[in-house]
């Protein structure tokens, strides 16, 4: 109103001035600055994640030659295939087993690392993180050589003790064991570092109080450590479950899904069907089938995290 009284010349000028003022105010707001600064990342995610996701949904609704809309036809076809259900079963087995072992090993190693004096702890932390830091395609190639049919270092060592060579990747049971082993080796350090951070945030007073109450080592873990780490365990498990479920490189390099499809996961089978078999819509449907399974897991895990957050 003051502006109007001072500048009697034109209403448009006033409007322009107030618009400019609003822009200035908006730019001064922290949320606007934050938005502008994250905008490049939002654009990047939109281009590299959101667009491909919707494009994959579009592809999954087309026929094999991608000329006709078939709705849920590809999914209906998949549900009738034995191999598809075998892949579902294997993906669940692979992801759940690997995540349990990664969490268990990560938890144990985090405790060991936590009890090391802080000077030496840094070196140990660094060394323990090495498997997680090396690109998995590279480290898996090294594992492939260890399992190699002709030159396996493992079989050579076993041979020194008179043990017959093991078909690490040629037998379904051993092949599943091998891909899970490599995934655990690669992923356990992530759990270790997350749990270590969580352990450091547990107040010492709680342990002191538990000790005064006569709690033994196991009771301290069960009644103090684990409840204090519940949220971080839940979120780490969810994150790892998603990544492990969608794993591609380890299986592709070690077994390519064999023998007789018995180590295929969603991603490797989608690649086999979609790219190598030139049935892109079916491949897209296979890879999209991961989404509802992971969404259900995410719902239950995050629901508990929210509930505990509200209780706190």
């Amino acid at each position: 109103m003051v502006d109007v009284a001072v500048r009697q010349g034109s209403v448009r000028g006033v409007r322009r001035a107030s618009a400019g003022t609003r822009l200035r105010y908006a730019l001064r707001r922290k949320s606007t600055v934050a938005f502008l600064m994250t905008l490049p990342l939002i654009v990047l995610i939109a281009v590299l994640v959101i667009y491909p996701a919707f494009y994959a949904i579009h592809l999954a609704t087309l026929n094999k030659s991608m000329t006709r809309f078939v709705g849920f036809g590809n999914f209906q076809f998949l549900f009738k295939r034995d191999t598809f259900w075998m892949v579902v079963e294997q993906s669940c087995l692979f992801a759940i087993t690997a995540v349990i072992f990664k969490a268990l090993i990560g938890f144990i190693v985090a405790h060991f690392a936590h009890n090391i004096p802080s000077k030496k702890q840094r070196k140990w932390r660094g060394m323990l993180l090495v498997p997680w830091v090396i690109p998995p395609a590279m480290s898996t190639l090294a594992w492939l050589w260890l399992f190699d049919p002709s030159y396996s270092a493992f079989n050579y060592t076993l041979g020194l003790f008179g043990i017959a060579p093991i078909p690490w990747l040629g037998d379904a049971g051993w092949a599943r064991f091998s891909v899970i082993l490599v995934n655990v080796w690669y992923g356990a350090p992530f759990f270790m570092i997350m749990y270590l951070a969580a352990l450091k945030s547990v107040p010492d007073q709680l342990y002191e109080a538990a000790a005064i109450d006569g709690a033994n080592w196991w009771q301290r873990i069960w009644y103090v450590t684990l409840p204090m780490m519940r949220n971080i365990i839940a979120i780490t498990t969810l994150f790892s479950l998603i990544v492990t479920f969608a794993n591609f490189d380890i299986v592709r390099i070690l077994t390519a899904g064999g023998p007789v499809d018995q180590t295929h996961l969603f991603a490797t089978w989608a690649f086999r069907v979609g790219i190598e078999g030139r049935d892109i819509p079916l491949g897209a449907s296979v890879s999209l089938f991961m989404a509802p399974i992971l969404a259900i897991a995410a719902y239950f895990i995050l629901r508990d995290v929210t509930k505990r957050g509200n209780e706190a």
């Binding site: 190699d148 049919p149 078909p167 690490w168 040629g170 037998d171 092949a175 077994t255 064999g258 023998p259």
Partner: peptide
Amino acid sequence: PPDVAAWDDAS
């Protein structure tokens, strides 16, 4: 050989 099921083109 017992592990031919796992052989690739390099094996």
